[in-house]
Design a protein around this nucleic acid. Structure first.
Lengths: 164, 164
DNA sequence: GAAGATGCGAGCAAGACGGTCGTATATCCG
DNA sequence: CGGATATACGACCGTCTTGCTCGCATCTTC
Protein backbone atom coordinates (compact mmCIF):
# COMPACT_ATOMS: atom_id res chain seq x y z
CA UNK A 1 0.00 0.00 0.00
CA UNK A 2 2.23 2.76 1.25
CA UNK A 3 0.06 5.35 -0.38
CA UNK A 4 -0.69 8.86 0.66
CA UNK A 5 -4.23 9.90 1.33
CA UNK A 6 -6.63 11.47 -1.09
CA UNK A 7 -6.50 14.63 0.96
CA UNK A 8 -2.79 14.95 0.29
CA UNK A 9 -3.45 14.35 -3.38
CA UNK A 10 -6.07 17.07 -3.39
CA UNK A 11 -3.74 19.42 -1.59
CA UNK A 12 -0.96 18.89 -4.10
CA UNK A 13 -3.34 19.29 -6.99
CA UNK A 14 -4.65 22.53 -5.57
CA UNK A 15 -1.19 23.95 -5.04
CA UNK A 16 -0.25 22.96 -8.54
CA UNK A 17 -3.37 24.67 -9.83
CA UNK A 18 -2.49 27.85 -7.99
CA UNK A 19 1.05 27.70 -9.32
CA UNK A 20 -0.30 27.35 -12.84
CA UNK A 21 -2.37 30.49 -12.59
CA UNK A 22 -0.12 33.10 -11.07
CA UNK A 23 -1.90 35.89 -12.92
CA UNK A 24 -5.06 35.40 -10.88
CA UNK A 25 -4.77 37.03 -7.51
CA UNK A 26 -6.64 34.37 -5.61
CA UNK A 27 -8.71 31.34 -6.50
CA UNK A 28 -11.64 30.28 -4.39
CA UNK A 29 -11.82 26.75 -3.04
CA UNK A 30 -14.97 26.25 -5.05
CA UNK A 31 -13.25 27.18 -8.29
CA UNK A 32 -10.38 24.80 -7.72
CA UNK A 33 -12.70 22.02 -6.64
CA UNK A 34 -14.80 22.37 -9.75
CA UNK A 35 -11.73 22.33 -11.98
CA UNK A 36 -10.89 18.84 -10.75
CA UNK A 37 -14.23 17.45 -9.61
CA UNK A 38 -13.23 17.47 -5.97
CA UNK A 39 -15.87 17.85 -3.24
CA UNK A 40 -15.67 21.60 -2.53
CA UNK A 41 -16.16 21.43 1.22
CA UNK A 42 -13.47 18.82 1.59
CA UNK A 43 -11.01 20.83 -0.44
CA UNK A 44 -11.89 23.90 1.58
CA UNK A 45 -10.85 22.17 4.75
CA UNK A 46 -7.60 21.05 3.19
CA UNK A 47 -6.81 24.55 2.02
CA UNK A 48 -7.59 25.88 5.46
CA UNK A 49 -5.04 23.52 6.92
CA UNK A 50 -2.46 24.56 4.37
CA UNK A 51 -3.20 28.15 5.26
CA UNK A 52 -2.69 27.47 8.94
CA UNK A 53 0.79 26.09 8.35
CA UNK A 54 1.67 29.09 6.24
CA UNK A 55 1.79 27.57 2.78
CA UNK A 56 -1.20 29.54 1.57
CA UNK A 57 -2.62 32.97 2.12
CA UNK A 58 -6.37 33.26 2.41
CA UNK A 59 -8.64 36.14 1.77
CA UNK A 60 -12.30 36.12 2.70
CA UNK A 61 -15.05 38.11 1.09
CA UNK A 62 -16.25 38.49 -2.44
CA UNK A 63 -13.63 37.59 -5.03
CA UNK A 64 -11.61 36.14 -2.20
CA UNK A 65 -9.83 32.80 -2.14
CA UNK A 66 -6.38 31.37 -1.71
CA UNK A 67 -2.98 32.16 -3.11
CA UNK A 68 0.49 30.75 -2.62
CA UNK A 69 2.32 32.46 0.19
CA UNK A 70 5.69 31.57 -1.31
CA UNK A 71 7.16 30.95 -4.72
CA UNK A 72 6.12 27.57 -6.14
CA UNK A 73 9.78 26.67 -6.50
CA UNK A 74 10.29 26.85 -2.76
CA UNK A 75 7.34 24.72 -1.66
CA UNK A 76 8.16 21.04 -1.42
CA UNK A 77 5.83 18.09 -1.70
CA UNK A 78 7.07 17.02 1.69
CA UNK A 79 5.72 20.15 3.33
CA UNK A 80 2.31 19.65 1.80
CA UNK A 81 2.06 16.00 2.71
CA UNK A 82 3.37 16.61 6.18
CA UNK A 83 0.86 19.39 6.75
CA UNK A 84 -2.09 17.26 5.67
CA UNK A 85 -1.23 13.71 6.62
CA UNK A 86 1.07 14.44 9.51
CA UNK A 87 4.55 13.01 9.96
CA UNK A 88 5.31 9.99 7.86
CA UNK A 89 6.87 6.87 9.26
CA UNK A 90 7.47 3.84 7.16
CA UNK A 91 7.55 1.72 10.26
CA UNK A 92 4.18 1.09 11.78
CA UNK A 93 5.54 2.01 15.20
CA UNK A 94 6.22 5.70 15.58
CA UNK A 95 9.67 6.77 16.78
CA UNK A 96 8.54 8.47 19.97
CA UNK A 97 6.22 7.53 22.80
CA UNK A 98 4.67 10.93 22.35
CA UNK A 99 1.28 11.78 20.96
CA UNK A 100 1.05 8.99 18.42
CA UNK A 101 -0.06 5.56 19.53
CA UNK A 102 3.27 3.84 19.91
CA UNK A 103 2.90 0.15 19.33
CA UNK A 104 3.56 -2.16 22.24
CA UNK A 105 6.64 -3.76 20.77
CA UNK A 106 8.81 -0.68 20.76
CA UNK A 107 11.62 -2.60 22.38
CA UNK A 108 11.27 -5.87 20.51
CA UNK A 109 10.86 -4.29 17.09
CA UNK A 110 14.25 -5.10 15.67
CA UNK A 111 13.40 -3.80 12.27
CA UNK A 112 12.41 -0.28 13.09
CA UNK A 113 15.89 1.16 13.20
CA UNK A 114 17.17 0.07 9.78
CA UNK A 115 13.91 1.04 8.16
CA UNK A 116 14.01 4.46 9.72
CA UNK A 117 16.84 5.18 7.34
CA UNK A 118 14.59 4.30 4.44
CA UNK A 119 12.07 6.62 5.95
CA UNK A 120 14.60 9.40 5.92
CA UNK A 121 15.42 8.65 2.31
CA UNK A 122 11.79 8.91 1.29
CA UNK A 123 11.51 12.19 3.16
CA UNK A 124 14.49 13.53 1.29
CA UNK A 125 12.97 12.34 -1.94
CA UNK A 126 9.79 14.27 -1.27
CA UNK A 127 11.73 17.26 -0.04
CA UNK A 128 13.45 17.41 -3.41
CA UNK A 129 10.14 17.75 -5.27
CA UNK A 130 8.68 21.19 -5.47
CA UNK A 131 5.32 22.39 -6.65
CA UNK A 132 7.00 24.01 -9.62
CA UNK A 133 8.25 20.58 -10.65
CA UNK A 134 4.69 19.32 -10.85
CA UNK A 135 3.75 22.19 -13.14
CA UNK A 136 6.62 21.50 -15.48
CA UNK A 137 6.00 17.78 -15.57
CA UNK A 138 5.29 16.30 -18.95
CA UNK A 139 3.36 13.09 -19.64
CA UNK A 140 5.54 10.06 -20.16
CA UNK A 141 4.73 9.49 -23.82
CA UNK A 142 5.71 13.04 -24.66
CA UNK A 143 8.73 12.89 -22.41
CA UNK A 144 10.90 10.99 -24.86
CA UNK A 145 10.51 13.66 -27.51
CA UNK A 146 10.98 16.55 -25.14
CA UNK A 147 14.02 18.65 -25.69
CA UNK A 148 16.14 18.09 -22.60
CA UNK A 149 18.13 21.28 -22.86
CA UNK A 150 18.12 23.01 -19.51
CA UNK A 151 15.46 21.26 -17.46
CA UNK A 152 13.69 23.42 -14.91
CA UNK A 153 14.72 21.32 -11.96
CA UNK A 154 17.96 19.48 -12.41
CA UNK A 155 18.00 18.15 -8.89
CA UNK A 156 14.60 16.58 -9.30
CA UNK A 157 15.74 14.55 -12.24
CA UNK A 158 19.05 13.62 -10.73
CA UNK A 159 17.39 12.26 -7.63
CA UNK A 160 15.06 10.05 -9.58
CA UNK A 161 17.46 8.92 -12.23
CA UNK A 162 20.06 7.89 -9.72
CA UNK A 163 17.60 5.42 -8.30
CA UNK A 164 16.12 3.86 -11.38
CA UNK B 1 1.00 8.81 6.91
CA UNK B 2 2.63 6.81 4.18
CA UNK B 3 3.46 3.99 6.50
CA UNK B 4 3.48 0.30 5.82
CA UNK B 5 1.17 -1.94 7.76
CA UNK B 6 1.93 -3.83 10.92
CA UNK B 7 1.61 -7.03 8.97
CA UNK B 8 4.46 -6.01 6.73
CA UNK B 9 6.47 -5.12 9.81
CA UNK B 10 5.76 -8.52 11.28
CA UNK B 11 6.70 -10.23 8.05
CA UNK B 12 10.03 -8.44 7.84
CA UNK B 13 10.76 -9.19 11.47
CA UNK B 14 9.99 -12.85 10.97
CA UNK B 15 12.21 -13.11 7.92
CA UNK B 16 14.98 -11.36 9.78
CA UNK B 17 14.53 -13.81 12.64
CA UNK B 18 14.80 -16.74 10.28
CA UNK B 19 17.88 -15.24 8.69
CA UNK B 20 19.46 -14.86 12.11
CA UNK B 21 19.03 -18.52 12.96
CA UNK B 22 20.18 -20.42 9.91
CA UNK B 23 21.31 -23.35 12.03
CA UNK B 24 17.73 -24.25 12.99
CA UNK B 25 16.05 -26.15 10.20
CA UNK B 26 12.64 -24.56 10.66
CA UNK B 27 11.01 -22.28 13.20
CA UNK B 28 7.33 -22.54 13.99
CA UNK B 29 5.12 -19.49 13.70
CA UNK B 30 4.45 -19.78 17.40
CA UNK B 31 8.14 -19.61 18.27
CA UNK B 32 8.74 -16.52 16.18
CA UNK B 33 5.61 -14.85 17.50
CA UNK B 34 6.66 -15.43 21.08
CA UNK B 35 10.11 -14.07 20.41
CA UNK B 36 8.63 -10.71 19.48
CA UNK B 37 5.31 -10.68 21.31
CA UNK B 38 3.33 -10.88 18.08
CA UNK B 39 -0.14 -12.48 18.02
CA UNK B 40 0.68 -16.02 16.85
CA UNK B 41 -2.35 -16.56 14.68
CA UNK B 42 -1.80 -13.32 12.87
CA UNK B 43 1.83 -14.10 12.23
CA UNK B 44 0.85 -17.55 11.03
CA UNK B 45 -1.32 -16.07 8.34
CA UNK B 46 1.42 -13.71 7.27
CA UNK B 47 3.90 -16.53 6.99
CA UNK B 48 1.40 -18.53 4.99
CA UNK B 49 1.15 -15.71 2.52
CA UNK B 50 4.91 -15.45 2.28
CA UNK B 51 5.00 -19.18 1.67
CA UNK B 52 2.46 -18.90 -1.10
CA UNK B 53 4.58 -16.39 -2.99
CA UNK B 54 7.63 -18.58 -2.61
CA UNK B 55 9.67 -16.63 -0.10
CA UNK B 56 9.33 -19.28 2.58
CA UNK B 57 9.20 -23.02 2.69
CA UNK B 58 6.73 -24.56 5.10
CA UNK B 59 6.70 -27.92 6.75
CA UNK B 60 3.73 -29.22 8.70
CA UNK B 61 3.80 -31.77 11.46
CA UNK B 62 5.65 -31.96 14.73
CA UNK B 63 8.84 -29.92 14.79
CA UNK B 64 7.64 -28.31 11.59
CA UNK B 65 7.69 -24.63 10.77
CA UNK B 66 9.06 -22.21 8.24
CA UNK B 67 12.45 -21.64 6.67
CA UNK B 68 13.77 -19.24 4.05
CA UNK B 69 13.47 -20.64 0.57
CA UNK B 70 16.33 -18.49 -0.67
CA UNK B 71 19.46 -16.92 0.70
CA UNK B 72 18.72 -13.91 2.92
CA UNK B 73 20.95 -11.81 0.69
CA UNK B 74 18.64 -12.36 -2.27
CA UNK B 75 15.33 -11.49 -0.60
CA UNK B 76 14.43 -7.83 -0.82
CA UNK B 77 12.23 -5.82 1.47
CA UNK B 78 10.20 -4.90 -1.56
CA UNK B 79 9.25 -8.52 -2.18
CA UNK B 80 8.06 -8.95 1.37
CA UNK B 81 6.05 -5.76 1.47
CA UNK B 82 4.58 -6.41 -1.93
CA UNK B 83 3.55 -9.91 -0.94
CA UNK B 84 1.81 -8.74 2.22
CA UNK B 85 0.47 -5.29 1.47
CA UNK B 86 0.06 -5.63 -2.26
CA UNK B 87 1.42 -3.24 -4.85
CA UNK B 88 2.35 0.16 -3.53
CA UNK B 89 1.22 3.38 -5.11
CA UNK B 90 2.05 6.71 -3.64
CA UNK B 91 -0.86 8.25 -5.47
CA UNK B 92 -4.22 7.51 -3.99
CA UNK B 93 -5.53 6.58 -7.43
CA UNK B 94 -4.23 3.30 -8.70
CA UNK B 95 -2.69 3.25 -12.16
CA UNK B 96 -5.11 0.77 -13.70
CA UNK B 97 -8.87 0.45 -13.76
CA UNK B 98 -8.34 -3.17 -12.78
CA UNK B 99 -9.07 -4.81 -9.47
CA UNK B 100 -8.32 -1.86 -7.25
CA UNK B 101 -10.93 0.82 -6.76
CA UNK B 102 -9.70 3.45 -9.15
CA UNK B 103 -10.77 6.87 -8.00
CA UNK B 104 -13.19 8.78 -10.14
CA UNK B 105 -10.78 11.50 -11.12
CA UNK B 106 -8.41 9.34 -13.11
CA UNK B 107 -8.49 11.79 -15.96
CA UNK B 108 -8.45 15.01 -13.99
CA UNK B 109 -5.71 13.93 -11.58
CA UNK B 110 -2.88 16.00 -12.94
CA UNK B 111 -0.52 15.02 -10.21
CA UNK B 112 -0.53 11.27 -10.54
CA UNK B 113 1.97 11.08 -13.32
CA UNK B 114 4.86 13.02 -11.78
CA UNK B 115 4.35 11.28 -8.47
CA UNK B 116 4.47 7.90 -10.10
CA UNK B 117 8.16 8.57 -10.61
CA UNK B 118 8.55 9.04 -6.88
CA UNK B 119 6.70 5.82 -6.48
CA UNK B 120 9.21 4.09 -8.68
CA UNK B 121 12.05 5.58 -6.69
CA UNK B 122 10.66 4.27 -3.44
CA UNK B 123 10.26 0.85 -5.00
CA UNK B 124 13.88 0.89 -6.07
CA UNK B 125 14.85 1.96 -2.60
CA UNK B 126 13.07 -1.00 -1.08
CA UNK B 127 14.38 -3.30 -3.75
CA UNK B 128 17.91 -2.39 -2.69
CA UNK B 129 17.31 -3.54 0.87
CA UNK B 130 17.71 -7.19 1.55
CA UNK B 131 16.87 -9.27 4.60
CA UNK B 132 20.57 -9.79 5.18
CA UNK B 133 20.95 -6.03 5.50
CA UNK B 134 18.47 -6.01 8.35
CA UNK B 135 20.47 -8.65 10.17
CA UNK B 136 23.70 -6.73 9.83
CA UNK B 137 22.14 -3.44 10.85
CA UNK B 138 23.70 -1.79 13.87
CA UNK B 139 21.98 0.72 16.16
CA UNK B 140 22.76 4.32 15.40
CA UNK B 141 24.76 5.09 18.54
CA UNK B 142 27.08 2.19 17.87
CA UNK B 143 27.27 2.92 14.20
CA UNK B 144 29.75 5.76 14.49
CA UNK B 145 32.29 3.53 16.16
CA UNK B 146 31.80 0.61 13.83
CA UNK B 147 34.75 -0.26 11.68
CA UNK B 148 33.67 0.44 8.14
CA UNK B 149 36.09 -1.89 6.44
CA UNK B 150 34.18 -3.97 3.93
CA UNK B 151 30.54 -3.42 4.74
CA UNK B 152 28.24 -6.33 4.04
CA UNK B 153 26.07 -4.43 1.63
CA UNK B 154 27.78 -1.56 -0.07
CA UNK B 155 24.85 -0.78 -2.29
CA UNK B 156 22.52 -0.40 0.64
CA UNK B 157 24.69 2.24 2.22
CA UNK B 158 25.35 4.01 -1.02
CA UNK B 159 21.67 4.32 -1.77
CA UNK B 160 20.88 5.85 1.58
CA UNK B 161 23.88 8.08 1.89
CA UNK B 162 23.36 9.57 -1.52
CA UNK B 163 19.99 10.85 -0.41
CA UNK B 164 20.72 12.21 3.02
C1' DG C 1 -3.80 -42.24 16.82
C1' DA C 2 -2.49 -38.33 19.52
C1' DA C 3 0.24 -34.19 19.45
C1' DG C 4 1.89 -30.41 17.13
C1' DA C 5 2.23 -27.95 13.19
C1' DT C 6 0.38 -25.48 8.74
C1' DG C 7 -3.80 -23.92 5.61
C1' DC C 8 -7.77 -21.30 5.19
C1' DG C 9 -12.10 -19.00 5.57
C1' DA C 10 -15.36 -16.34 8.29
C1' DG C 11 -16.08 -12.92 11.47
C1' DC C 12 -15.42 -8.81 14.46
C1' DA C 13 -14.17 -4.46 17.01
C1' DA C 14 -11.76 -0.19 16.63
C1' DG C 15 -10.08 3.27 14.03
C1' DA C 16 -9.00 5.87 9.77
C1' DC C 17 -10.77 8.01 5.74
C1' DG C 18 -13.68 10.56 2.69
C1' DG C 19 -17.23 13.46 2.82
C1' DT C 20 -21.31 16.36 4.61
C1' DC C 21 -23.77 19.82 7.37
C1' DG C 22 -24.42 23.79 10.04
C1' DT C 23 -22.90 27.90 11.67
C1' DA C 24 -19.94 31.83 12.61
C1' DT C 25 -17.10 35.36 10.61
C1' DA C 26 -14.81 38.31 7.35
C1' DT C 27 -14.98 41.17 3.13
C1' DC C 28 -16.65 43.49 -0.88
C1' DC C 29 -20.17 45.99 -3.38
C1' DG C 30 -24.25 48.51 -4.25
C1' DC D 1 -26.69 49.30 5.96
C1' DG D 2 -27.39 44.80 4.04
C1' DG D 3 -26.94 41.18 0.89
C1' DA D 4 -23.68 38.23 -1.61
C1' DT D 5 -19.64 35.66 -1.47
C1' DA D 6 -15.96 33.78 0.66
C1' DT D 7 -13.17 31.56 4.54
C1' DA D 8 -13.05 29.21 9.49
C1' DC D 9 -14.29 25.57 12.24
C1' DG D 10 -16.40 21.95 14.70
C1' DA D 11 -19.53 18.04 14.83
C1' DC D 12 -21.15 14.20 12.58
C1' DC D 13 -21.60 9.95 9.71
C1' DG D 14 -21.18 5.91 6.58
C1' DT D 15 -17.79 2.93 4.77
C1' DC D 16 -13.64 0.70 4.30
C1' DT D 17 -9.32 -0.94 6.21
C1' DT D 18 -6.60 -2.89 9.83
C1' DG D 19 -5.38 -5.88 13.34
C1' DC D 20 -6.80 -9.79 15.37
C1' DT D 21 -9.50 -14.07 16.78
C1' DC D 22 -12.02 -18.44 16.09
C1' DG D 23 -12.99 -22.64 14.10
C1' DC D 24 -12.00 -26.32 11.35
C1' DA D 25 -9.47 -29.11 7.99
C1' DT D 26 -5.10 -31.16 6.80
C1' DC D 27 -0.54 -32.76 7.12
C1' DT D 28 3.40 -35.08 9.59
C1' DT D 29 5.99 -37.22 13.16
C1' DC D 30 6.34 -40.09 17.29
Amino acid sequence: MLRLTKKADYGLMALKFLAEHPEVHSQSAKDIAEAYGIPPQLLAKILQRLTKVGLLRSHAGINGGYSLSRDARTITAFEVIHAIDGPLFITSCGPKTGSSRSCDLVDSCTIKEPLSRVNESISELLRAIRIADLVDAVPFDRRTHAKTGQPKSAQFDRQLVSLS
